[in-house]
């Protein structure tokens, strides 16, 4: 059976908020490394991978591998009943029909209990190759969100160019064009505000802003975001959590 308790329900709430517009139904795979999910969006150009490691939970018990087939809209409805700082316990039998969620308020003796019906989801498991990227850029997640939102007002796609000096986001649309450059800067006092560029070689790729804006819903998970780019391979966008991550992969647009 599975029994996994999160100190803060907010963690799962944020994860579900971050991915629910990309993926409707998916398996939460529970095993001795924690809870993971991996799913492609309907159009098969983006992939989300999430891992909540066992340290994220206390206690964490999972006797055998269990796939919890969950409709994310349903899970979100139930999670709305949890306060952000409630203790959240997930429980399931070995061959479950339902996932049991218990929300316990830290401040009073309120205990709320919900069951979500599970579904059989026949999901393809994909191997994500270890990739040496041409450029890896770590920047404030709020800044990345702002840039994507601002440029999306002008255009459907953005060109991202990473060089030693900085990272440039630019777009062209019917009403005009726009560009935002972040220079490499190491903020010693506030490291989360730094823009750090690790460069093997300069790289420039174009992506759909619709997807990037969607991925930015994960911004509440982490103050920083890491973008990894290489020619002709999917962009990797990682939001690191204390004990896990949410990663998005997006295929570059062709013809540039």
């Amino acid at each position: 059976m599975l029994e996994a308790r999160l100190e803060q329900a907010a963690v799962l709430k944020k994860v579900v908020d971050a991915i629910k517009d990309l993926v409707q139904d998916c398996n939460f795979d529970c095993n001795d490394s924690g809870i993971q999910l991996q799913a492609m969006d309907n159009s098969h150009v983006a992939l989300v991978a999430m891992h909540l490691k066992t340290d994220a939970f206390s206690p964490y018990r999972c006797d055998r591998n269990i796939a919890l087939g969950i409709n994310l809209a349903s899970l979100q409805k139930v999670l709305r009943a949890a306060q952000n700082d409630d203790l959240l316990t997930l429980k399931a039998e070995d061959a479950p029909d339902v996932l049991n969620l218990v929300f316990e308020s830290a401040e009073n003796d309120r205990i709320a209990e919900y069951d979500i019906k599970l579904m059989d989801i026949d999901q393809e498991h994909l191997g994500i190759p270890d990739t040496e990227y041409a450029a890896t850029v770590t920047m404030p997640s709020s800044e990345f969100q702002r840039i994507c939102r601002d440029l999306n007002a002008l255009s459907e796609s953005v060109s991202i160019e990473a060089a030693k000096e900085g990272i440039k986001f630019s777009c062209q649309g019917d009403i005009g064009s726009g560009a935002v450059t972040l220079r490499q800067n190491n903020n010693v006092e506030k490291p989360d505000l730094s823009t750090i560029i690790e460069l093997n070689e300069p790289v420039g790729l174009t992506f759909s802003l619709k997807y990037l804006v969607n991925f930015c819903k994960a911004s509440s998970l982490s103050n920083t975001v890491k973008l990894s780019l290489s020619a002709e391979v999917p962009l990797l966008i990682e939001y690191k959590m204390e004990s896990g991550y949410v990663r998005f992969y997006l295929a570059p647009k062709i013809g540039d």
């Binding site: 150009v45 191997g127 992969y249 295929a251």
Partner: peptide, 14 residues
């Protein structure tokens, strides 16, 4: 589309 095909190429089915 070819974009989908490239994603499939990158992420190998296990």
């Amino acid at each position: 589309t070819s974009t989908q095909a490239r994603m499939q190429d990158f992420f190998k089915a296990i």
